[in-house]
């Protein structure tokens, strides 16, 4: 308690420089202090502030990949990054990437929208009403362990190959993530906040809108991010087996044709879309619920 907050925060980094081979938790701070010392140099401020570490990491990854690819000399198993890049440009020029990506993203958006419409209201009902929860929860707990993927054969029979199957699988996956988070969000509302609203004569619908909903929002947003991640993972499996187009289909299609550079190019597309969407959702989360951290906990 005797050190000021700023001093105790700084303590970590300074200690690391003085104390080589210290605790496991200290080695990293050394790197940070090195950066701090380097920044007030001759470079313009905005340039010094950009963190080039990710670029360097990816550059090293590409170099290692190139090296391994040349060394294994098996272009079908591991094409070089250059050939993957060329394949990517080809596919992009022919519009094939946009075509498949658009199909997958549309399915994703539709699925998430359906899942929100189904899961969030049900989550509020179950979170607010113990009786409804007691009836519905066992069914949810029975179905939840059966992964969306395991529905594929049955769904293939019911829906055939097409748009409906991937959407069904994704809705199923997203539904549970959203539902469980909504329920726990609604239940996490501090009863005192509701009691306080009541003593002020606020009516029940107003309490729902102005107390319960905002309090549950962080958990719902976290649930939505989880739902997105689950759905984006499931879409590949669903399209790979049960769709005539989309990114999952494209990967498998070119795998069968042994056109590895295109397989890798499409995997790259999946990674980039997934990454960008996650960044977008994080930004949305900060806008919607600025008072909590990324895991949804108030800090």
């Amino acid at each position: 308690m005797s050190a000021t907050p700023s001093a105790s925060a700084a303590l970590k980094m300074d200690q690391a420089t003085t104390d080589v081979g210290g605790g496991a938790a200290q080695t990293g701070d050394r790197a940070r202090s090195g950066r701090g010392a380097a920044s007030p140099g001759g470079v313009p401020g905005w340039l010094a502030r950009i963190d080039f570490t990710p670029l360097r990491s990816f550059a090293i990854l590409l170099l290692v990949w190139q090296g391994v690819a040349v060394w294994t000399a098996s272009p079908i198993q591991l094409p070089t990054p250059l050939r993957v890049g060329a394949a990517f440009l080809d596919l992009a020029a022919e519009g094939e990437i946009t075509e498949h990506a658009l199909v997958s993203v549309t399915r994703l958006v539709v699925s998430l929208a359906i899942a929100v419409v189904l899961a969030v209201p049900l989550g509020f009902l179950m979170g607010l009403n113990r009786k409804i929860d007691a009836f519905v929860d066992p069914l949810i707990e029975l179905l939840r362990p059966i992964s969306g993927i395991a529905w594929i054969p049955l769904a293939l029979f019911i829906f055939g190959i097409g748009d409906v199957l991937p959407v069904f699988i994704m809705v199923y996956v997203a539904f549970f993530a959203l539902l469980l988070n909504t329920i726990s969000g609604v239940r996490s509302v501090d009863p005192k906040l509701i009691a306080a609203a009541r003593t002020m004569g606020v009516a029940r619908p107003m309490i729902l809108a102005k107390v319960v909903a905002p309090a549950a929002l962080p958990a719902i947003v976290v649930g939505f991010r989880l739902a997105f991640a689950g759905a984006w993972a499931a879409i590949v499996a669903a399209e790979l087996i049960g769709a005539p187009n989309g990114l999952g289909f494209a990967i498998e299609w070119y795998r069968e044709l042994l056109m590895s550079p295109k397989v890798f190019a499409f995997i790259l597309v999946i990674a980039v879309i997934g990454y960008v969407c996650d960044l977008g959702l994080r930004a949305l989360q900060r806008r919607l619920t600025p008072w909590v951290d990324e895991a949804g906990h108030s800090s």
């Binding site: 000021t4 980094m13 300074d14 701090g36």
Partner: peptide, 14 residues
């Protein structure tokens, strides 16, 4: 004992 703040380079004398 002086501490240097990580980003600002601000020095605090403890």
């Amino acid at each position: 004992k002086a501490f240097v703040a990580p980003r600002t380079g601000h020095r605090t004398l403890a």
